[in-house]
């Protein structure tokens, strides 16, 4: 168990800088999710912590010690790879025991630890199989087992669930989270799935193009996104972003006042989460529904704001039987659910 500190961490491949300076303090035992779109540098960031990529600038501290120049094996970490990276020629038991064998443990010690891990991960009957003879979910568990037997201070996960089907993903997500809190190990978890990020993270880093757009708890990021990018990336369906103006202390969408605000007058981006608008015959937002998607617990309405080409999505509780294409609806918004962003910088106002 250890803290991890990133100080202005930078990475360049040749002349291209892909990580532009990330600062973060990770507490002991914290579960941190690094989330962002493909190519934003999540894996690169994780691999710098692992020691698989050299650090171009800044510092990585693990347990308070500078780790920049340490080899991966000297960092007291374990990593679970997206493709699991099991040793194909070894049995499950050998896969899990490899690190212990290198560490010089005796055979009985290794066997005890491997069996304990196997029991924890429900791999008991599979110890003599080769990775080839396992299902995707079982391989995933073996990869986890290999990480936990060595009792590292930090777990690193690089999209460990992305090769599993949706149902298994939900199950493993819970198991990983449970396991991590049971072991109390600091974890860094990379994913591009915002649901994983929301459900697993103690805190998350929302990354975009090599920059940490926001670092915070899932609810902080959801409720007070610090940038347009974080606002749109976290939350499903994505937040509606509309061009608006502030005039005389009111947020104006065209000629309609949506909410009161104390912010300075001028053009703004108005963010409204689909689930934060409510049907209201007197409401300021008029929407022309083009398509209704009933999802069971809620219904998504896709359409545009009346009289414009601006796309708008609303999410209503329950089955909304009345909704159909071409219907006109009005919605009201609570001012606290209006997110205002600077149109130039994308920063929250």
């Amino acid at each position: 168990m250890a803290t991890v500190t990133l100080k202005d961490l930078r990475k360049s491949f040749g002349p291209d800088e892909v990580i532009h300076g990330i600062d973060m303090e990770i507490a002991d035992g914290e579960f941190i999710v690094i989330v962002g779109p493909s190519g934003c540098g999540k894996s690169t960031l994780l691999r710098m912590v692992a020691g698989l990529e050299t650090v171009t600038g800044g510092e990585v501290l693990i347990g308070g010690e500078r780790a920049n120049d340490k080899e991966p094996m000297d960092r007291d970490i374990a990593m679970v790879f997206q493709n699991y990276a099991l040793y194909p020629h070894m049995t499950v038991a050998q896969n899990m025991g490899y690190g212990l064998k290198i560490a010089g443990l005796s055979k009985p010690e290794i066997a005890t630890k491997v069996e304990a891990a196997a029991e924890l991960l429900q791999l008991d009957g599979l110890l003599d199989r080769r990775p080839k003879q396992l299902s995707g979910g079982q391989r995933q568990r073996v990869a986890m087992g290999r990480a936990i037997v060595r009792e590292p201070s930090v777990f690193l996960f690089d999209e460990p669930l992305s090769n599993l089907d949706a149902k298994l993903r939900v199950q493993m997500r819970l198991e990983i989270k449970e396991l991590q809190s049971k072991l109390g190990v600091t974890a860094l978890y990379v994913t591009h799935d915002q649901v994983e990020a929301m459900t697993m993270a103690d805190r998350m880093i929302v990354m975009n193009a090599g920059v940490a757009e926001q670092i915070g708890t899932p609810m902080e990021v959801y409720e007070t996104p610090q940038s347009l990018f974080a606002a749109q990336f976290i939350g499903s369906p994505a937040m509606n972003v509309l061009d608006a103006r502030i005039e005389g202390g009111r947020v104006m969408l065209g000629d309609v006042a949506v909410a009161e605000t104390g912010k300075r007058a001028g053009p703004v981006k108005l963010g409204l989460r689909p689930e934060h608008v409510a049907p209201d015959a007197e409401g300021p937002l008029a929407m022309e529904v083009l398509l209704a998607e009933p999802l069971g617990a809620n219904t998504l309405l896709h359409g545009r704001l009346a009289g414009t080409e601006i796309a708008f999505t609303a999410s209503l509780q329950g089955v909304h039987l009345a909704s159909h294409g071409g219907e006109a609806m009005r919605f009201g918004v609570d001012p606290v659910d209006c997110h205002l962003f600077d149109p130039e910088t994308g920063h929250r106002l």
Binding site: A50, G51, L52, E71, P72, M73, I77, A78, M79, F81, Q82, N83, A85, L86, Y87, P88, H89, Y98, G99, I102, A103, R146, R150
Partner: peptide
């Protein structure tokens, strides 16, 4: 030989020659 398998071995504590003899060579067999 998958890069990640080698990296996993490195994280598991195996240095170059150890990796070579216990991972790479068997996979080349």
């Amino acid at each position: 030989v998958p890069r990640s398998v080698i990296e996993a071995a490195a994280i598991d504590g195996a240095r170059f020659w150890r990796r070579f003899f216990t991972i790479v060579l068997p996979l080349l067999s």
